[in-house]
């Protein structure tokens, strides 16, 4: 009889979960799929760069100088005769790393902060969100510039500084999510069953709050990458010998009259990545039916 009951349930036709529905919707969105494909491709290349880059990172060919795209150097070379493709590949590692690491920092702080404020509520919530409000009013862009000027151009500091800005929105989204969900009757039902708070958070709150967080995370990565490129362009971000797309664009802009490819290809790499992330983010927003995140 037991086995029979288990079999009956196991053989019942499976329902379609919201995640599966979302995936089906995402699959129909060509732009989002394109974004996902391009992004995966770039990430793969970034991971494999040390092994697949056509030239060494520091290889120079001063005799060659800046040369347009050719069979040997697909994207041309810079003024020191360095292969541009190689430069872009190594630069991409830094740009993507900044994007993902700083976003993770923001995600970690923001989600924790927002979840606690939203779940505990009352005075704790008021105090925590008041702090977020005050930080929100600070002109952070200028602060980051200041920070980079004062403490030197340090990659770790860059991660932290950018992460420190972006977590605010994340905290707000997470808090409003948790607050909305907490008032939902299924959470009340879970309380009335007698579930401990930790299980309620794990089983009922987090899976339902995940959609907006995923969407907003996807949309935060491009804005973080932009911030890094912006700082690097001003000479306040990544420093040689390291490089990033922002830095390459900055060099390219200096010599664009004579060697336009030095501007165009790094610019293309950055723009394409930003496009992909934004398309994917918008696609996820539609697929997960998330309203209001990221706009």
């Amino acid at each position: 009889m037991n086995d029979q009951a288990i079999n009956m349930i196991a053989q019942a036709p499976p329902g379609s979960s919201l995640w599966r529905d979302a995936w089906h919707r995402l699959k129909r969105n060509r732009l989002a799929l394109f974004g996902l494909a391009v992004l995966s491709f770039f990430i793969l290349i970034a991971l494999l760069t040390p092994w697949i880059a056509p030239y060494g990172y520091a290889d120079q060919n001063l005799d060659l100088g800046a040369s347009p795209p050719s069979a040997e150097h697909w994207l041309g070379t810079d003024v020191f005769g360095r292969d541009l493709l190689t430069q872009i590949m190594y630069g991409g590692r830094i740009s993507l790393a900044v994007g993902f690491v700083a976003t993770s920092v923001a995600l970690l702080i923001g989600v924790t902060w927002g979840a606690i404020a939203g779940y505990v509520g009352g005075r704790v919530d008021a105090a925590m969100m008041r702090m977020v409000d005050i930080l929100y009013a600070l002109p952070f862009m200028i602060f980051i510039v200041l920070l980079m000027v004062v403490f030197g151009r340090n990659l770790i500091l860059l991660f932290l500084a950018i992460g420190a800005v972006e977590w605010l929105t994340m905290a707000r989204i997470m808090r409003s999510q948790v607050q909305t969900l907490r008032q939902q009757e299924f959470v009340e039902a879970a309380i009335s069953i007698g579930l401990p708070a930790s299980t309620i958070v794990r089983r009922h709150l987090i899976p339902n709050a995940l959609g907006p967080i995923i969407v907003y995370t996807t949309l935060t990565i491009p804005s973080v990458m932009l911030l890094e490129a912006f700082l690097s362009f001003l000479g306040l971000g990544v420093q040689p010998p390291q490089t990033s797309w922002g830095l390459l664009i900055s060099y390219g802009a200096e010599t664009m009259e004579e060697y336009p490819w030095l501007l165009i290809f790094p610019g293309l790499a950055l723009t394409l990545t930003l496009f992909s992330l934004n398309f994917l983010g918008d696609g996820l927003r539609d697929a997960l039916d998330v309203r209001g995140a990221g706009d």
Binding site: Q184, E185, A190, I193
Partner: peptide, 19 residues
């Protein structure tokens, strides 16, 4: 809590959509 339970008004909001 085992001994007292509740049934809510809105059957759309009272079930966890992911379970």
């Amino acid at each position: 809590r085992r001994r007292m339970q509740i049934i809510f008004q809105d059957p759309f909001a009272s079930l966890n959509p992911r379970m």
